[in-house]
Design a binder for these strands. Sequence first.
DNA 1: TAATTATATCATAAAAAGATTACCGCCTTA
DNA 2: TAAGGCGGTAATCTTTTTATGATATAATTA
Lengths: 226, 226
Amino acid sequence: MPTMMKLLLVEDDEAIAVGLEYSLSQEGFEVVICNDAASALDKITSQDFDFAIIDISLPDGNGFDVCKKLKEKGDTPVIFLTARDDEGSVVMGLDMGADDYITKPFRLRELHSRIRAVLRRANKLSEDHIINIGGLTVNLAEGKVKKNGREVFLTALEYRLLLTLISNRGQVLTRDQLLQSIWDVSGDFVNDNTLTVYIKRLREKIEDDPQNPTIIKTVRGIGYRV
Amino acid sequence: MPTMMKLLLVEDDEAIAVGLEYSLSQEGFEVVICNDAASALDKITSQDFDFAIIDISLPDGNGFDVCKKLKEKGDTPVIFLTARDDEGSVVMGLDMGADDYITKPFRLRELHSRIRAVLRRANKLSEDHIINIGGLTVNLAEGKVKKNGREVFLTALEYRLLLTLISNRGQVLTRDQLLQSIWDVSGDFVNDNTLTVYIKRLREKIEDDPQNPTIIKTVRGIGYRV
DNA sequence: TAATTATATCATAAAAAGATTACCGCCTTA
DNA sequence: TAAGGCGGTAATCTTTTTATGATATAATTA
């Protein structure tokens, strides 16, 4: 049974926090949000995290303390978020043991890729984060997908769709749920057929026989299930 | 798995130290800095170095002790940095087993070529410092690159780019990471396309078929990977 | 079974990302 | 000081991705 990576996100800006949480959960992380250093420190004592993203400029003191504690406790990998012009903090952060930093504003893809890099370096990639379904292997941390041992290249959206499906393995996801989780809108705004087309393309890439899918199954009238 | 050469830099002048570290790391060395003899001696006990650059005039005593210890421990090659008018020290340093010396101020190229010369003489060039990828051979110590046995001449930037890529082999480096590590700035300051152009130039020189690169692979939406 | 509805397939337009080419200015070196 | 290499930019071309409409097929039900 694969476990999701548990991620601590310390960010006081509500908008950013919510956006990141959404995006990261799509990537297969279980996200815990704190909006200040105090509550983060609190969380750390009671829970273990595989990874942390910390905004340096927090309302109550800076994020360095959080980083320090994480490092002391279990050498948890940390990425700092900083403002563009905050060079000093960056140096200090890296001194403190941070594994990487990324300046705001950033692109989500960039962040995801850095997270993977850091995780890889930290050797946190274990069997736990590899999912195996009918010859299909999804490495959540590296973002790589293999079919029968051969690497398959998915586009960004295809990957997201697959991830949404397998992270809800066993349960049927409605078309609308899928639309919302991947395009962030309900069926009214995106052509309903778009989802169908993406499912087809995904099957084309990961199924042995796309005409008779064994991984992504159609549940007529409702949606799809893995 | 090829290892980078590990270099000990003992220099009290902060500006010089930082500059050298940067430049040497670009050349493929892993650089450890100490700003005084004491901490250098300390480092030597706990770590092994392939090479050392030592400023003779250190705040706490001179660099000779450091040299002596390095020679005793593992006959590590040493280059001394000296002031122009310090003839006596030079003689003493060479007596002590130093392999070369260079007077300040010096040009980086000069230093690099001396380092290579010393390493060559000291026979420290081992398989360890040679990376081999699909017909491409990179000799980290000599700074030479060969493609299918024939030497390829890269410009300074091309070499840095290649080095950054291969020293993170297997993982995707984002465009921004590459820009940062090679131009030391984020995407806002250097034309984003510049990276693309350099990748192309590099491919032109090291790929069998630049149109279908097998060494430097593009990961659309993120960056490049070796 | 015909009509209806849901899903699958195909083809293609629009947009985005990257590759390619050509060019310019600067510095080195002869 | 002229020639050539290097670093960087701009404009253009190519490829890939994303999204949609049209049509075909399969399942459901009146």
